[in-house]
Each structure stands twice: as C-alpha cells, then as structure tokens.
C-alpha cells in the first residue's frame, strides 16, 4: 500500500514516496504521486521516489512534460476588451451581410423558379405543407381556442362593471383576428417548423450533402430554401384563418356559457365588429411571418457549424431569431396600420 508520507503543512526536510510492494495500480496512483511531487516543489523540498514501477515512472515523466506545455498556455493572457468588442462588431457586421446575401439569393432563386417552374420541387413543397399545415392543425387549434378563452375572461372582468358583457365579442373578435391569430400561428410555426428546417438543413450540411448539391450544379436555394418558403407562405395564412375561427370560438364558449349572452347575439356582434380590413390586415401579416419563419430556419441551418452541437445551436437560434423578427414586424405593422387606418 502507498504510505501517505505527505501530511499537513509542516516543516519537511524531504518527502519520500515508497511504492515498493505494489503489484497492481491504476491512474489514481499516478495522480497521487504527481500531486506529491508538485507539493514538494511548492514547499521547495527534495522529493524522492523509491521503487517506482518503470511504467509509472514513464507516465510520470510524460505527465510532467504535458503539464509544463499546458502551463505556458495558462500563462497567456486573454484578449483585451477592445479586441473582444472589435471581434463582436465584425461578427455582427458579417451576420448582417449574410442576411442580405440570403435575401438576394432568395430573390434570384425566385426569379429562376418563375422562369422554369416545371423544375420546381413541388413534391418536397407539398411534404413541407403537410408537415407545417395539416400536421400543425391540432396544436394551432388548441392554442388559439385557449387564447380566445383567456381573452374573453379578461375582457369580461372589466366589461361586467359597466354591464357591457356583449362587447366581449368585439374585443375577442378584433384582437384575435388582428393580432393573436396571426401571431400565435407564427410563433407555433417557428417552434414546430422553423426549428425542424434548421435541424434538417444543418444536418445536411454536416453530412456534406449541401456541398454535393453545389458540385452537382443544383442551387441549395432552389432545392432547399424555396420549397420551404413557398410551403410556409401558403400555409401561414391558411393556418391563421383556422386559428381566427377557433379563437372566436373560444370567446363564444365563454360568452355564451359564462356570461349568458345569447348565441345569435354573440355571432351578430362578432360579425359587426370584425371588418374585412381587419381580416385582411391579419392575413397580410401572416404571409410575412411565414416568410420570416422559413428564412430564419433555412439561414440558421445553412450557417450551422459542422457538428451536432452546431446543429443544436442553429435550431435554437432559428426559433429565437424567428420569434424576435415576428414581434418586431408586428410592432411595425401596428404603427403602419394605425397610420393607414386599417
């Protein structure tokens, strides 16, 4: 057994390690002995190793060498704040440049598609439509219904004080059609579909599949991005209409069930409140949200590092970017619609 000859911080003349009689050992002995050696060096006393097995002695030498090699790296100071800031700035600029390039390429791809629409990958596009649209119906429906319900309850608390419960229909109808329907649909699309776009494309990049496309003269834009974008541009407004209906239904359930508004009065009030321009405004927004979600998913996928960690980061970043842009766009539209009077 190893005798612990190094104890508390006392005055030592010498540290002696005797490994005689040890017949089997593993890395923990190596670690122990090398710690003792370091300790001895700290105290500045000689350290004598006795009866070290040859293999252990070799390993110890190697450990000492690699430590001194690693030590010099530790000594290197980190980059100064100015350098960090500069690098960040450069990275942000490059990121902006990549966005611009992406939109430019998208435009060119769109023009190519218009010229030879027969070669457009409609089959892929249909699959994406199914994944984003039909398969998203349950979750979009449930969330919109609940949002309508929540809005109705909140409105009822305020409106009841004035005996104006019937205006719950106006409030729910307008906020669902103008804001919540398009936005909730877009957020769900970003989480479900945008993330999966980024993961698919990132994985393809990792597997050299995108290089293969380029060397075979197939444009990744035409092959990967445009079908996804077309699918979302078509599906986002359709899903929004569906979300609007279910949101209003949520309000209706509260209005008729809790507030004792008659069914026909609720429908009539909703119809009166929601104009065609409200509906159109919401749908225009949803088309742009679809573009943003598809673009964020595809661009982050194309930018992803060639590693599984990189793909994970790309997926997260796709969702964050998409939701951020959705909210910013929505704020912009709120101002614009107010000016135009929609």
């Amino acid at each position: 057994m190893v005798k612990r000859s190094a104890g508390r911080r006392e005055k030592f003349q010498e540290i002696r390690v005797d490994v005689g009689g040890v017949d089997s050992w593993d890395s923990s002995l190596l670690l122990f002995v090398s710690q003792i050696r370091k300790y001895a060096a700290e105290l500045n006393v000689p350290c004598n190793m006795e009866n070290l097995p040859d293999l252990l002695r070799n390993l110890l030498e190697q450990a000492g060498e690699s430590e001194s090699a690693g030590g010099s790296q530790d000594a290197m100071a980190g980059p100064s704040l100015l350098v960090v800031l500069g690098e960040r700035f450069e990275k942000t600029l490059a990121g902006g440049g990549q966005w611009l390039t992406f939109w430019g390429e998208c435009l060119l791809g769109g023009l190519r598609m218009a010229r030879r629409w027969r070669k457009f990958r409609w089959r892929d596009c249909l699959i994406f439509m199914q994944q984003a649209g039909a398969m998203g119906l349950p979750i979009v429906g449930l969330i919109s219904f609940l949002v309508g319900l929540i809005l109705a309850y909140q409105a009822a608390i305020q409106l009841r004080e004035y005996g104006a419960e019937i205006f719950v229909a106006n409030l729910v109808g307008l906020s669902v059609v103008r804001e919540m329907g398009p936005m909730m649909t877009a957020v769900i699309l970003a989480g479900r579909t945008g993330a999966s776009f980024a993961a698919q494309i990132g994985n393809m990049k990792m597997n050299e599949e995108i290089d293969a496309l380029e060397t075979l003269g197939v444009h990744p834009m035409d092959f990967l991005v445009l079908p996804r974008m077309v699918a979302l541009v078509m599906m986002a407004p359709l899903l929004t209409i569906y979300a609007n209906l279910l949101g209003i239904l949520g309000g209706y359930v509260v209005g008729v069930g809790q507030l004792e508004i008659s069914s026909s009065a609720y429908w009539y009030q909703s119809q009166e409140a929601i104009g065609l321009n409200d509906l159109a405004g919401g749908l225009i927004k949803s088309v742009l949200f679809g573009v943003v979600v598809a673009a964020a998913g595809c661009l982050r996928g194309l930018q992803s590092d060639r590693s599984s960690e990189g793909v994970g980061r790309a997926t997260t970043s796709a969702v964050v970017t998409a939701i951020f842009l959705i909210i910013v766009l929505d704020a912009g539209f709120a101002v614009l619609f107010e000016r135009v009077g929609i």
Binding site: M204, E208, D211, A212, T215
Partner: peptide, 14 residues
Amino acid sequence: RRMGVLYQSAALWS
C-alpha cells in the same frame, strides 16, 4: 457539369 465528386461520407441526400 463535367465533373463528379464522391465525398468522404458519400453525402447522399438522406
């Protein structure tokens, strides 16, 4: 168009 490449991972579209 006049070249072909076989990638290390074969890079088939999955």
